[in-house]
Amino acid sequence: MNARKRRRIAFVVSLLLGGAAAAVLVVSALQDNVLYFYSPSDVYAKKVSAGTAFRIGGLVQKHSVKHDSGMTMKFVVTDGARSVPVEYKGDVPSLFREGQGVVAIGRLDGAGLFQADQVLAKHDEKYMPPEVVDALKRSGEWQKGQ
């Protein structure tokens, strides 16, 4: 290998390192902004003040979905450790289910209730035909959403 080629390789390596360093800088400068949502534990830890718009994500707590009069519904978002009650008026996506992942966009009111403008369902990474799910449930090996 001659000196010229060695110099070129050093140049390519410096490009890769430079690109990586720039990316690390940008990402660390963005910090929390790169997170798409906060978990209920994050909400408590950061003491998010009422009225600040953010996204909260977690699982819809089992047996927590309640439909009030009209289109208004209430449910609880939990991450196992902490939970936040959510109020929402409107249609929910077809993946929205108890025990499933959810992301709500809105703000906390003075009473600690999260007023959502929009509710998105988060899909997990499991893909199964219904028969397999039934079989798993029958054999007792099914732990949905936990």
Binding site: V34, L35, Y36, F37, Y38, S39, G57, V103, L120, K122, H123, D124, E125, K126, Y127
Partner: peptide, 9 residues
């Protein structure tokens, strides 16, 4: 990061 997109399957 937390994302709406699902994790690796």
């Amino acid at each position: 990061w937390t994302t709406l997109h699902q994790g690796e399957s």
